[in-house]
């Protein structure tokens, strides 16, 4: 589905991502993990075309640079970290922007599936009752749900989620991740998620890419990548012992 060859992202002379290659196939849920500054978000930015990059990235065999913005948005939905409207739009208006690429274009053709897809997205994210609410009156977590609803309304084949659990309380984290795994069950879909939380990564990711200083340290089936040794090498600490220690604290 998505394939990256020798992908490099530079900010000035410093490389945030160097020479990463990646093959994402249908049905896979990739998690990109690594410490701060490892280049996770830059990699996700390059794959979602919001950050310039060197190397080749193809989607269904076609260079992603060759897609028009609308063509790309019909295939790839992105939940990024930085947003928040300046003016007081309603929940429905922001989520409805997900349908832009389906009705955009010069002649502005109508979007017959739009209302139904938007309804579905609002229902899935539990926002139906908040649809007329002003975005300014929502909590950070609720706002994040609105942007997730926007991505769902977009109805893409590939979802790129950059730290989707940010601002979310535990029940909604769980809801979001089960929602995405439910979404992934439809054939022809795939998910790429940048994650800080290693437990979530281990629980939901089917494939993992471990990054350190912009380079791929390991990638493959999540169980084989997120090992004690790999994590120790990347994070410079015994992550397993730390997590076990935390769990032990609860058992006492």
């Amino acid at each position: 589905m998505l394939s990256a060859e020798n992908l490099t992202v530079r900010y000035g002379s410093a490389a945030a991502v160097s020479g990463v290659s990646l093959q994402v196939k249908e049905g896979e849920w990739w998690v990109i993990v690594g410490p701060n500054g490892a280049g996770k978000s830059s990699l996700a930015g390059a794959l979602s075309r919001s950050v310039p990059f060197e190397g080749t990235v193809t989607l269904d065999g076609r260079d992603i640079r060759s897609f028009s913005p609308a063509e790309f948005a019909r295939r790839v939905g992105v939940l990024s970290q930085n947003h928040g409207p300046v003016f007081g739009f309603t929940v429905e208006e922001v989520a409805g922007l997900g349908r832009y690429a389906r009705r955009g274009g010069f002649l502005r053709r109508e979007d017959p599936e739009g209302p139904e897809q938007l309804e579905k997205a609002l229902a899935l994210t539990g926002l139906t009752s908040l649809r007329r609410r002003n975005m300014f009156t929502l909590s950070g977590g609720e706002q994040q749900r609105v942007f997730l609803a926007q991505v769902l309304a977009q109805d893409p084949a590939l979802m790129i989620l950059d730290e989707p659990a940010n601002h979310l309380d535990l029940p909604f984290q769980q809801e979001l991740f089960s929602l995405v795994s439910e979404w992934l069950k439809t054939p022809g879909r795939a998910v790429i998620t940048v994650l800080h939380d290693l437990s979530l990564a281990r629980l939901y990711g089917t494939r993992a890419l471990l990054l350190k200083e912009g380079r791929s340290v390991a990638q493959g089936p999540a169980g084989q990548v997120l090992t004690r040794e790999n994590l120790r090498q990347v994070y410079g600490m015994d992550v397993f012992a730390w997590m076990q220690g935390m769990l032990a604290g609860w058992q006492e």
Binding site: S48, F89, V94, L97, A101, G104
Partner: peptide, 19 residues
């Protein structure tokens, strides 16, 4: 429509397919 997307966020506008 395009300006709505911009007002919500330029990066967001790009992701929903605004040129």
């Amino acid at each position: 429509r395009e300006l709505n997307a911009f007002a919500v966020g330029e990066e967001n506008a790009l992701h929903v397919g605004v040129p």
